[in-house]
């Protein structure tokens, strides 16, 4: 009974399409999907940085455009946003002192980008600004917006430079590779000091320089192991931790005397 009715529905749908020829000729719009094999990764104490591989697929790509290599993908792994103070040292009476500072709200702690080609070859700079895509285009909101634009610009540049120098902001050109017409693989770098917390993986699809679609997924990064437990205890049970540290010191002092006694 269901058979004929479903057939009928399909038939009427195709008739609808037939009635509007414009839609019928346009192939279904492209879109992008990314998948993470896990929604959480644990890094151990000895972690010294790693590459994270993200797989994704293009849906309904136009075979012609795909053959000409005019699809571009930008994948971003963005760390949790945190407020940051940037300080500048200046010489006062010969001594270098932290003098000026600027606070920014919600700066992603880390920001790793992987692209098929250099960003400037994929789309117009204005496009990235609009999408707030790429370390150079991220909007850093100053806490005090009354500061002069020149100052804000100077500290924003310093913030980006410091983040890049510590490996927290990175760009991997050629880090996205198409494995087939539909399937791609993106490799983003995790810095040794990658922050724990909820990271957001985002994939942007460009077709001939035009932004088409975005897809995102969440990734939890946590640290594991003994050292992490110590860190936890130090923050969650700080008083007990202090008592432990003091007792450990006294015990070591007492044992040291016992072992190496000279009197």
């Amino acid at each position: 009974m269901a058979g004929p009715r479903a057939f009928a529905a399909a038939a009427s749908l195709s008739m609808l399409f037939a009635l509007s020829p414009a839609t019928a000729q346009t192939p279904p719009a492209e879109s992008i999907q990314i998948g993470l094999s896990t929604d959480a990764i644990s890094i151990t104490a000895g972690f010294s940085g790693a590459d994270l591989t993200i797989f994704g697929s293009l849906e309904n790509p136009d075979p012609l455009i795909a053959r000409q290599g005019r699809y571009d993908v930008v994948v971003v792994l963005e760390g949790p946003p945190r407020p940051v103070v940037v300080r500048r040292k200046d010489r006062v009476l010969g001594v270098w002192i932290n003098l000026d500072s600027e606070t920014f709200e919600n700066v992603p702690v880390s920001y790793s980008v992987a692209t098929t080609r250099p960003l400037q070859d994929i789309a117009e700079p204005a496009k990235y600004k609009q999408l707030s895509l790429g370390a150079q285009n991220l909007y850093m909101k100053p806490a005090d917006e009354t500061d002069s634009p020149a100052t804000i610009e100077e500290f924003t540049a310093a913030l980006r430079e410091r983040k890049a120098a510590t490996g927290l902001y990175s760009e991997n050109v050629g880090g996205v590779q198409f494995l087939s017409q539909n399937l791609f693989r993106a490799t983003v770098r995790l810095a040794p000091n990658v922050p724990v917390g909820t990271h957001k993986a985002r994939a942007f699809l460009f077709k001939s320089g035009m932004f088409v679609k975005e897809s995102s997924a969440q990734l939890e990064i946590r640290k594991s192991g003994f050292e992490q437990s110590v860190f936890r205890v130090a923050h969650d049970y700080s008083f007990l931790y202090g008592v432990f540290a003091v007792s450990l010191a006294m015990l070591t002092g007492w044992l040291g005397r016992l072992i190496f006694r000279k009197d």
Binding site: E227, V230, A234, H235, S238, F239, Y241, G242, V243, F244, A245, V246, L248, A249, T252, G253, L255, G256, R257, I259, F260, K262
Partner: peptide
């Protein structure tokens, strides 16, 4: 001082302190 630093600033590193102490008590003799 250790107790107060541990509770207000969370800046006491027991692993670091222990390594220094272990070397220290031996060296002192």
């Amino acid at each position: 001082t250790t107790l107060v630093h541990a509770t207000t600033n969370q800046t006491v590193d027991v692993i670091l302190a222990f390594l220094l102490m272990a070397g220290g008590v031996a060296g002192a003799q």
